[in-house]
Amino acid sequence: DTTRLRFHTFMGTEIDPIIETFQDTVKEKSGGDLRVQVFHGGELVASDQLLEATSKGSIDIAHGVGSYWSGQVDIGNIEAGLPGGWTSLEEARAFFDSEPVDTILTEAYEEAGVVYLGKAYGHDYDLLTKEPVTSLEDLKTRKIRATSQIAKVLGSFDIPTVYLPAGELYIALSTGVIDGAIYGGPIEYEQLKLNETATHYTRLNMLMPGWTDTFIANPEKWNALSDEHKAIMEDAIAQYATDLNEWLAAGNQSVVDKGDVFEFSVLPEEDSKQLTVAAQEVWQEEADRSERNAKLIELLIENAKAQGRL
């Protein structure tokens, strides 16, 4: 008798090849006893409702980003990635795999009524502008689209920020409502065709990977799975996460290799450092939200010190 799991990702159809491998692996390894039905971003529930839907059982497993539900789970913003949080995939992975961090996440999600299954890692998350950027100073006269945490950091340099959903970026950039955006990496910008209006890609060296994803499951549904099935799912999700990161990396590299899509530059090291320092205010604000957040931020600071960044 077959068990069907409703898996909802926040991503769109562009990752369908990865999803198909994921579905095939689960089906094969379980001898067809376990099947995954996948829904793309917004298909069944809006991305900011993924946590709620998982805890209620409208969906069984969600692949989302902590910042979507940080209004409901205190650690959401921190685990999604704060400016200055980590600077390489290895560092981020080591941080989240460490026992104290893993415990905090498990506990926070348990409180929110879901099972924490693990992480996936994003990739480049930098600034795209219509005009070249050589320093933070340049940005003070430009309007930049950014989400809340980044916006706060930019705000401390008097850089004006605007929030717009991704779907509006193209029009907003092409018509000058905004002068730039921080939304993703080269591949995301190219997919949104933003290169038609803005071609200056500035690496901020602020956060890499620029975001992390989280997998969560409905407790009832998850606990009803046999240990064998749980193991199959965990392995398949880990593979899905790896594939996703590699796909992003390859995509970003392919845009760089094309050579004529964006003009790449790097923010001066001094400015990047300033961003990291300014980000401490945001870290502190997150730490103040709860005791658990304070603990997680402390671990983040410890890590940054060990890496020699603070």
């Binding site: 959401g76 989400t147 809340s148």
Partner: peptide, 10 residues
């Protein structure tokens, strides 16, 4: 949880 929106800085 005194939920807040995380769309913008507001």
């Amino acid at each position: 949880v005194l939920e807040y929106s995380n769309k913008s800085m507001w």
